[in-house]
Design a protein around this nucleic acid. Structure first.
Lengths: 315, 315
DNA sequence: TGGCGTCATAAGGGTTCGGTTAATCGGGGC
DNA sequence: GCCCCGATTAACCGAACCCTTATGACGCCA
């Protein structure tokens, strides 16, 4: 019984599939499956079995889960405790959904690291896996939609709109009914492919078939494609505003939009989160943070760029 | 960072020496030292350093200890939880000081296993290492002298006396002053060599030099040697009584003896001890247990001997 | 200044771990 | 009935783990 095995077990249990756990850990699927089967053999219990909605816990697995989760957490605690005791630079691991990572997280973290001695990393994750990443201490802070159960706090409001190239057929209409959007090509970023994200929810509500969804490496790339008339794209109002002003994109007058939404900052409860996570939460209330996250293009002034932000893409 | 390494660290910290930890774990000294150095390297902290009274914790080690201890405990919890969930026979690991193991523990456990479905093991440990064995879940129940901090409960009273062969010089005296015992050959069992045991305390109080102490594999063997006139030995009144009646041994009229003492049964607190440990604690209140532990020779009736008690000697 | 007890390191070997790619199995949906 | 996706298994490999015995280093004490 090793900590690696326990972590694999916990993530499979929490995320409901070996595949998702492998992605979250950044390893191959058989690696997770193998860890799991080693643990199964050691404890002589299946722990998890295929069920209707993914992998389901056996009776033994249900007993093991809280214990294993705590052990994984304590392992993180142990490393933290030592690091702290020897004054090493603290680390802050931020995960964000792709849109947030692209436009908001980077300037936010840059501003934060400029005033705090901390080594920050930024990763991209889906809203679905974010809770597991936080509870298992694979990350300290999650930026994205509201996540149930964990300690979320509104970070910034934004308006979700639908945009298209200015010559797009729908751009000339005075009014667009939701039904007309189902057979459009939708140009989205990674978070659009995540059913738990706001865009995912939107696409589901519009009953857009998967075949019509094209995933771009970034939302900016999706907008460029939209500007070229390749389809419609979700947009964050204040972020697409420059493109609209410039006349490359048009906001479609879709019924039910704009949708007013909130991005949240999510951490563990106050008793379990890292000090740095608390600092970041507080930092969000400052004018500096406000200004950083409202920059329309997600760019960072050169002068601020000194303390490098290490970006690890975990997708 | 593996659980093995953490366990080694915890035991060294608790017992104050690599040597003691190695003994408790039943491995060689370099095995423990190696685990420790791997952990040191991984965390980049000495954790433990040589100090006046054995190994002492560094600042980092102090932070790590409670976390590591909890992790080791949870590992035990995990195994228990699974075992329990699949109805496997429960296990009960009893440790006792050598005298208790020789005369009391075996009949007690035999009686207990006769009425409860449990797989019991009996090990021998010193009073010094017993608390660490219990807190780190290497054992469920400790039988011996009272141990601070943990949850002890009196198990049986006994009287400590000093015996010698009937022809021994001191056996003819009407009164033996403590000072006269310091230059005798003392014949003791393993617990006599443990400064934390009652006999160890007695020897220290009498200022018996180590050179005069001879350790026998069992208290019975020590008594036999005493009967042959080789020296004096500590005795448990009701256990040596038959030998005294038979005239092979004599109780010396040492000032300050007999000493009234108690053997305790010690476990973790009610919230953390295993169910079987609780059962054994309760069993001790029954007449069956009373009778078993008061048998003068520690023997077990054949009829009762069916459910075998696995005895592992950890010395 | 030896001796002694204790911890650390060296050297070596067997086992497990943790990961990979590629192939196979199994169940649900069309 | 077939197909596809996800889980598992197979085969393999390097690295780490964990133990051993033997030897070195260190502090303490007579």
């Amino acid at each position: 019984m090793t900590l690696t095995q326990l972590e694999a077990f916990v993530l499979v249990a929490r995320l409901g599939s070996v595949k998702a756990a492998a992605r979250a850990l950044g390893v191959s699927e058989p690696a997770v499956s193998g860890a799991l089967s080693a643990l199964r053999q050691h404890l002589n219990d299946p722990l998890l079995a295929r069920g209707a909605g993914g992998m389901e816990l056996t009776a033994g697995g249900q007993r093991l889960l809280p214990i294993a989760s705590q052990m994984v957490n304590l392992a993180a605690d142990a490393e933290d405790a030592i690091r702290e005791s020897q004054g090493a630079p603290e680390v802050l691991r931020v995960v964000a959904t792709s849109t947030v990572a692209e436009y908001v997280a980077r300037p936010l973290i840059t501003a934060f690291t400029a005033r705090t001695k901390v080594e920050a990393t930024l990763g991209v994750a889906t809203a679905t896996e974010m809770p597991a990443l936080l509870t298992e201490r694979l990350a300290d802070v999650g930026l994205g939609p509201q996540l149930g159960a964990l300690e979320g706090k509104p970070m910034m409001r934004y308006r979700l709109v639908v945009v298209a190239g200015r010559r797009h057929r729908l751009a000339r209409r005075e009014r667009v009914e939701p039904g007309m959007l189902a057979d459009q090509d939708w140009l989205v970023d990674a978070s659009g492919a995540d059913p738990a994200s706001e865009v995912g929810v939107l696409l589901a509500r519009l009953r857009v078939p998967e075949a019509r969804i094209r995933v771009f490496p970034s939302l900016g790339a999706a907008w460029n494609a939209a500007a070229d008339g390749e389809g419609v794209a979700p947009g964050v109002a204040h972020l697409v505003a420059p493109e609209v002003v410039r006349g490359r994109l048009a906001v479609l007058p879709v019924e039910g939009t704009p949708v007013d939404l909130l991005w949240h900052v999510t951490t563990l409860g106050a008793d379990r989160r890292s000090p740095m996570a608390t600092r970041l939460r507080r930092f969000l209330d400052t004018p500096d943070a406000m200004q950083a996250i409202h920059r329309a293009d997600g760019s960072v002034p050169v002068s601020r760029f000194r303390p490098p932000v290490y970006v690890t893409l975990w997708s």
